[in-house]
């Protein structure tokens, strides 16, 4: 893990995707440290106290590309007190404090990979997708589920990346039309990959269902990587 840095940031933009889902663009006061796609940051709404202790914070996958050193973005859904406060308080010009990078949910670019993303869980993969070069050789298949068509916040980015990278495929699963994101819809494609690693990011209930289904297809435990939180 690279050296963790605390950085004061200014909120540059707030994008309201509807249904209490937001993307926040941050302007950091220092260059963004190197991070790996899939890593996350801690975000605090209050400054570090005079006692030096880091204030209450929550973690968010870094949605922006590691290549960008002068901006960061996160996407979140309002689910509790802290994110409720974010919804109320974060407006352009507001100061926030972050520390990063953290996490080991990092995709091995040398192996075929299957990515299951539910809702804002896609942000664990967006930095990776943006880091892919046109000549990327390993196959990557993304299965991206959202509660309805309006909540495919990152569909334009996914399409743009896929247009640029021949080995990247994707499937959008609109849960209103297609039902819950599951392994069955993916399996015909997954079966054509070369012993892929399978990465899961999304709500805990979705992760549990996907894990069970993958075990049903004899996918080895070691090949299933989960962006899970307590």
């Amino acid at each position: 893990m690279a050296v963790v840095r605390r950085i004061a940031c200014t909120v540059r933009q707030v994008i309201d995707h509807g249904e209490h889902v937001y993307t926040i663009e941050l302007q950091p006061s220092l260059p963004v440290p190197r991070f790996r796609p899939g890593q996350f940051l801690h975000l605090a709404l209050d400054p570090v106290g005079h006692d030096g202790f880091w204030p209450d914070s929550r973690v968010f996958s870094i949605a922006s590309s590691p290549r960008e050193r002068d901006r960061l973005s996160i996407t979140y859904a309002v689910k509790g007190t802290f994110t409720g406060r974010m919804e109320r308080e974060l407006v352009p010009g507001r100061s926030v404090w972050i520390k990063l990078p953290y996490g080991e949910f990092v995709i091995d670019p040398t192996r075929d990979a299957v990515l299951f993303a539910g809702g804002t869980g896609i942000t664990a993969f967006t930095a990776f997708l943006q880091s892919l070069e046109p000549d990327h050789t390993s196959r990557v298949e993304l299965f991206y589920g959202a509660r309805n068509a309006e909540l495919f916040v990152f569909a334009p980015l996914v399409r743009a990346c896929a247009a640029n990278v021949g080995t990247l495929g994707y499937t959008l699963v609109d849960e209103q039309l297609d039902g819950r994101l599951g392994v069955e819809v993916a399996w015909p494609t997954v079966a054509t990959l070369d012993e892929p690693d399978v990465y899961l990011s999304g709500p805990p209930s979705m992760l549990e269902v996907l894990r069970t289904q993958l075990r049903g297809h004899d996918v080895a435990h070691a090949r299933i990587k989960t962006d899970a939180w307590e």
Partner: peptide, 16 residues
């Protein structure tokens, strides 16, 4: 654990 002194559960897996 790699949490700095005074920090807790920066990995989100402290008890799991």
């Amino acid at each position: 654990c790699y949490c700095a002194g005074g920090e807790n559960n920066t990995c989100g897996k402290r008890f799991s």
